[in-house]
Design a protein around this nucleic acid. Structure first.
Lengths: 232, 232
DNA sequence: CGCATTTAATGGTAGTACCAATATAGAATG
DNA sequence: CATTCTATATTGGTACTACCATTAAATGCG
């Protein structure tokens, strides 16, 4: 394996990073120094660093105090690659909804156990925002406000689950899903009102710290979406 | 945004790919031609292609009929970035198990509805492999055989769900999880036998095309793991 | 026709030079 | 002394040239 010099350099540096030898935020040597140390040209070093940067393992800044800095990958990179695959059409609409249906009830259950007071109040703020946006949802910009707040509502619960993996996955799904469901035909005023009501029930279950109920209500809420336009 | 020439080139080419303008497998112009067409140096073009390759959007081959080829990202890139984040310690052990608990029951339910005859027979082959490996599980190499087959069992069901997103996610989780649970203390012969029994029940539910039962049995199976060593 | 050889095209690597951004050291100034 | 401006050093970003290694196609030969 690792036929090229660049690939060798990448795997070497990547394992040092993942092994924790280079802590988060650590500054690597300059490209010129790395080239000398590894007996490679700056060209090759730069190619390797480019790859590592694209993987989210380092970030680079120019300038005197600049250089390459270790940045341990977070859920962001998962969300990004998920969005890439979806954007490329590698995952169908029904797949998205099914995945959501797998993830979010679990998020709700965990959030009921773990979400703090501030998180819950943030959630009810978002809920108020949705209610106020709904009043004039005929206005296109308000419809957008409504949908954005809806996404934030679900994301906030995922964060509230305290589970980085679940949150990252939902973050990757939510934008494509939002575009998928934004259809005035199937998502009219009646449905929006129903949606707000469901959110109310979820909030209440979370405040009661009732995990199973939160899970059940969330599940029902999502399945209602699925039923709206049977096949996406 | 896109302060550097490289970044500009990357975003331009990426959107062309995601827009479907460049179909899967399409061959890009050579680096020298791209440089001319974009009025950039080959250096910059190469930097951009390096990034796109790391994102899984293109692959490159040397040689006369070589070049850069569009490769629409698949679940692999999601699995990879998931493994990167986990490898960097960005996701805890309990997070992993909870995510698994969210994903796999859904996989089982869908697989019960969608898995074909060949898939089911593959599954029972894997099951036989596990049974035969279990007989001499004291032997370390056989223990490895057993665990590998176990992973394949769960992955096969995820594929059988026909849902690319769920399969990709489990693929990213399974290796780290396998290492996590491979503890002779908590996973002794008694537990292995119990595990095989659970797999048997899952197989049977799938063959009966009983989705809800498949979901329930899978869920119970995973929760047994969780209970084994309460906190990972 | 079939096989070996040559040739041409590609990405990979090296090296040099210079540019642009930016933190730091130092000088000028109040 | 404090502040502000200026020079400077260090860094990544880009350009250009040259050559190598790999690979498939074109060519030649038997």
């Amino acid at each position: 394996m690792d036929t090229t010099e660049t690939a060798r350099f990448v795997t070497a540096l990547r394992s040092r990073i993942l092994a924790g030898e280079l802590p988060d935020g650590a500054r690597l040597e300059s490209e010129r120094e790395l080239a000398l140390r590894h007996g490679l040209s700056r060209t090759t070093i730069r190619a390797g660093l480019q790859t590592l940067e694209a993987s989210g393992l380092i970030s680079r800044r120019v300038g005197r105090a600049g250089g390459s800095f270790v940045s341990l990958p977070t859920g962001d990179s998962v969300a990004n690659s998920l969005q890439l695959v979806i954007g490329a059409g590698g995952i169908s609409g029904p797949d998205l909804m099914e995945t959501r249906l797998a993830i979010e009830p679990m998020c709700a259950e965990l959030a009921a156990e773990r979400m703090g007071k501030d998180g819950l109040s943030e959630l009810s703020d978002i809920q108020s925002e949705m209610v106020s946006a709904m009043r004039v949802v005929g206005n296109p910009s308000n419809r957008q406000r409504f949908l954005t707040a809806n996404a934030r509502f679900h994301l906030r619960i995922a964060y509230g689950s305290g589970n980085a993996a679940l949150a990252a996955i939902l973050r990757g799904l939510i934008d494509p899903i939002e575009k998928l469901i934004d259809d005035p035909e199937t998502l009219g005023e009646t449905q929006l009102r129903e949606l707000v009501r469901a959110h109310e029930a979820i909030c209440s279950a979370l405040q009661d710290r009732n995990g199973p109920r939160a899970r059940a209500v969330m599940r029902k809420h999502l399945q209602a979406h699925l039923a709206l336009n049977g096949r996406y």
